[in-house]
């Protein structure tokens, strides 16, 4: 299909009286890697969660691959909440990696990776295990297939989480500060996996303050501030000539 893979149109989201997203519009092309930066509380996590409908949207629309996520459009153009199996089907095509890994602690590394393919895609166990083993090998954990999350380092856990998301064959990957809960020496191994994904042409939206990563693989960097997109450009643009004073202030803190 043509057109952008992700299209956010004037997205608004509030929690009680707090308006967290105040009209975010964003297109992400197929194969594009977008890095999202911004101060704590600016709404980065909320935007990612809205994209795969872990949060409802109050106003505006989000399309992934031409389809609304979590909603359907009636003939008269009205938007209604979608039925749960439909929501689940659309979510299955959107991988998400969380800041705190959120691995399933009662399942092994392989168990974490195959639980989606087996129970959502109804893939036979043998086949799912082959796929899972290949993915764990790909993220450098071929030897940790039978380890439980509690027996893995943070960097290893996050790589399992990436493999778990990839196992569903997603068209889009969302990363929410995937390295910020890691010890500094473990950050590199996770970023390497993400870089190789980017090189393979995966469409990615990555919330991170790793500007080195942004410079290397991001097609575009977006700066969010108080629920709106304030500035966007290449990583170089943000290093050399950020225009907005708030962007300058923010970058001076993280660089």
């Amino acid at each position: 299909m043509e057109g952008p893979l992700v299209r956010c149109v004037d997205v608004h989201k509030r929690f009680g009286r707090l308006e967290v997203l105040r009209g975010v519009s964003l297109d992400v092309a197929r194969g594009e890697v977008v890095v999202l930066i911004g101060a704590s509380g600016s709404g980065k996590t909320t935007l990612l969660r809205c994209i795969n409908h872990l949060e409802t949207v109050d106003r505006g629309r989000i399309y992934v691959d031409g389809e609304l996520v979590g909603y359907r459009e009636d003939h008269d153009g009205r938007v209604r909440a979608d039925r749960e199996p439909e929501v689940a089907r659309k979510r299955a095509a959107i991988g998400m990696v969380f800041q705190r890994f959120n691995l399933f602690p009662h399942l092994t590394a392989l168990g974490n990776v195959i639980v989606g393919p087996m129970h959502v895609k109804k893939m036979p166990r043998r086949r799912a295990e082959e796929v899972g083993q290949a993915l764990l090998a790909k993220v450098g954990l071929g030897a940790k297939v039978n380890a439980y999350p509690g027996q893995l380092s943070g960097g290893q856990q996050q790589r399992v989480a990436i493999a778990r998301a990839l196992a569903m064959g997603p068209k889009l990957m969302l990363f929410d500060e995937p390295t910020s809960a890691l010890d500094p020496e473990l950050v590199g191994e996770v970023l390497e996996v993400m870089k190789s994904l980017a090189r393979e042409g995966m469409t990615m939206i990555v919330v991170t303050h790793e500007m080195g990563f942004a410079r290397e693989v991001a097609d575009r960097v977006i700066f969010m501030d108080e629920g709106v997109i304030l500035e966007e450009g290449t990583a170089e643009h943000f290093f050399q000539s950020p225009t907005h004073p708030r962007t300058q202030a923010f970058l001076s803190k993280i660089l």
Partner: peptide
């Protein structure tokens, strides 16, 4: 059980009841 478990289960495409049962 941490709410992140439900989020992660949903993110791989499980429905609420599937996530409850498996995760």
């Amino acid at each position: 059980v941490e709410s992140g478990q439900m989020d992660a289960a949903k993110s791989v495409g499980m429905t609420y009841l599937q996530a409850m049962r498996r995760i």
